[in-house]
Design a binder for these strands. Structure first.
Lengths: 150, 150
DNA sequence: CTATATTAAGATAAAATACTCTTTAATATT
DNA sequence: AATATTAAAGAGTATTTTATCTTAATATAG
């Protein structure tokens, strides 16, 4: 699987935050309830995003977390790198360290093209875009489907 | 990371087997030496490929493993499915179970296009093709680079 | 100042993945 | 029949990922 579970939780929470109006802090409890993710685990994940300065947090009553920048200025990639690190996709599909421009394996061209596509998408898509389609509201849907599965 | 370590070991060994001439059994020891993978661990991995009938094995002197079919008739995908299973790529990049044709998330089109590309490549590329470029010989290279890293 | 709300941090546990070691079974050679 | 060679099977260990629980730190309200 390309992204870790942890990373997907971070993405969902970030998108949900982006979809909320205004600039006020949202409690992690509220996020974890809406996303059906364990409160404590989500706390850990969001701590990481806070460390990376993608989120801003505030303790005490009326505290919580919020995006540190406008949603249009935080990318999918920002979140992925913060949680899963830079190397989400290996250079070579076979993991051959020798594979590269000079001595490509037979998969090299196809693989690196796809790799670039994925990375470009991640760099291009912002949380604002991800939060945009209120119509389909996948996050709301998530709740019901997830609930059924458990 | 898309594929597990175990799966990449299986792929490397399969490609190496495909690159060897003839129809005779090759010992796992020989493969593990060439690939610098632990003999015991590679044994486990190859047992799985044997169970899936991608490899054929033979015990005793002059025993070993070999491809169960011509290298042109075993795909990258065959090996991946045998080791990592069918679900190497999630439906939705955000892992939203509600996401689909009916209610796509904003990433849906791009993501499923890329997903299809990756799966198509895996289905299309055979071990024969992967073993073909003797020139670049990434497997030989592997040995030296890998040795340096350790 | 005290009680309460909230994130941060740390310790622990459970599960999955990666890897190792030992024994057993099959086959061949002598 | 004895011995050597080899994969299969099973048990065990280590590491990473995922998750939980507890305590601390910080802020607010009264």
């Amino acid at each position: 699987m390309l992204l870790s579970n942890t990373c997907i939780y971070g993405l969902r929470a970030s998108v949900l935050l982006a979809s909320k109006e205004g600039d006020k802090f949202v409690t992690i409890r509220e996020l974890s309830d809406e996303l059906h993710i364990s409160f404590h685990f989500l706390t850990k994940v969001l701590q990481q995003l806070t460390k990376s300065e993608l989120l801003q947090s505030y303790k005490g009553p009326n505290g919580g977390v919020k995006l540190a920048r406008p949603a249009s200025q935080i990318t999918f990639m920002d979140v992925v790198i913060s949680i899963d690190g830079e190397n989400i996709i290996k250079e070579c599909a076979l993991g051959l360290p020798g594979c590269g421009e000079l001595k490509p394996c037979p998969l090299h061209d196809q693989w690196s093209a796809m790799k670039e596509n994925i990375l470009r998408m991640m760099r291009d898509v912002s949380l604002k875009q991800l939060a945009a389609n209120k119509n389909s509201d996948p996050l709301k849907q998530l709740a019901s489907v997830h609930a059924l599965k458990k």
